[in-house]
Design a protein around this nucleic acid. Sequence first.
DNA 1: ATTGTCGATCTGGTATACCAAAATTGTTTG
DNA 2: CAAACAATTTTGGTATACCAGATCGACAAT
Lengths: 229, 229
Amino acid sequence: MSLSSLPEQIADRLRRDILRGDLAPGAAIKERDKAAHEGVSRTPMREAIRILAREGLVVLRPARSPIVADPSIKEVTDELVVMCELEVLSVRLACLHAPDDAVERIKSLNEQFGLEYAHRDMLDLFEMDMAFHRAIAAASGNAALERTHGAYLARLWRARYLSARERRSRDRVLTQHGAIVDALVARDPDRAAIATGAHLRDLVTNITAVMAGEDNSANETETRTRDTA
Amino acid sequence: MSLSSLPEQIADRLRRDILRGDLAPGAAIKERDKAAHEGVSRTPMREAIRILAREGLVVLRPARSPIVADPSIKEVTDELVVMCELEVLSVRLACLHAPDDAVERIKSLNEQFGLEYAHRDMLDLFEMDMAFHRAIAAASGNAALERTHGAYLARLWRARYLSARERRSRDRVLTQHGAIVDALVARDPDRAAIATGAHLRDLVTNITAVMAGEDNSANETETRTRDTA
DNA sequence: ATTGTCGATCTGGTATACCAAAATTGTTTG
DNA sequence: CAAACAATTTTGGTATACCAGATCGACAAT
């Protein structure tokens, strides 16, 4: 009995491995080996890899092993900018159209975050943060927006995870989320948009700083020119 | 020799068939038959179908033939709203960062559109319109934005195609594109954003009208509840 | 005549076998 | 000793065979 298909399950496992860093950026994913390792055949493994490729977590190279994506700072920043825009749109739409109980749910998510703040594991807190942002996208009532936003959220998991390790950034998150909730409750689209924009712009600077620090190697990902011998 | 892989070629062909309407919305795509018909095996056909599924052109159902997507008006509208936002962001960024030759290219694309306006087939004109919008996204210098915008453009091909058949909408497109180009050349982000927003909002109303007219049947796509007999 | 059930058949899911291109490595030669 | 070439091996791409679940029709019992 499977809630999701086998390829999706494999993709989920691989995604976790990639995002948690167990599979290093730049590492090759040999479909034969991986399939054998997971105890499945190549076909579903292949499909799982394609799923992650579409998500941008692995890059496919013609006639070569797929490798774990190793996005440059610019690429991550670009993605963050887009996600920011999507979330601002979400919160605007949510102000206008979201039913009250959706707003209430978002509010309670943030309150819960405040409560559990001290006790919980960083990873749990992080999941709660994700849930908060996801809830806002869902509250927009725009399914396409929710999907695309979710895709970006997933792709940026790792970068956001790195950023969230900074302790001082966490309470800033809390107050900023509070501001967003307030504007949402007041049904004030402009204020909500500003609050969301500020929150995500902070995230951009934070992530940029962290990535610049951690990762001094200049790395590219996409198509690189290859010289013939 | 293939510029793109076999599955992508198949996907391209299928996409054309779907978007042009040769494959009716709601029609089943049986991978065995289709593969035999195209003269390839099931594996690449399967992969091609998955590609289109990710693009939202076909929907996969568990243990059932994939079917051509038949989006409701709301779904299309939602997607248009998101694409609008993406393109507004694109044009803003393009105003700020695009190199002059990129702006020049956009300008010339629109001029060419104006020139060929009379002689060319509607399909060609449509392709040129697509190229215009794509060029703006590319000029943003944000690869993620360009990708996502391109995905929406592809998915909305059919709806836009239906809309473009209205003759009177076409010269409005021309003037609106002109306004966008002017703002872009002047490097005025706000004016460009407004012009782009207006253009796409017109598109939304136009498409809504066309779809509501053409297609009176209330159609859903995603999960529909199925009553047991 | 209608309805319930069983089974043939059709469909997608998975495993595997085969192929062609590319990397690597070992050997040979300058 | 180094560089270049060739064969082997490794890899992903494709085709196909097999399996399980679902659908739909036929037949039988009421």
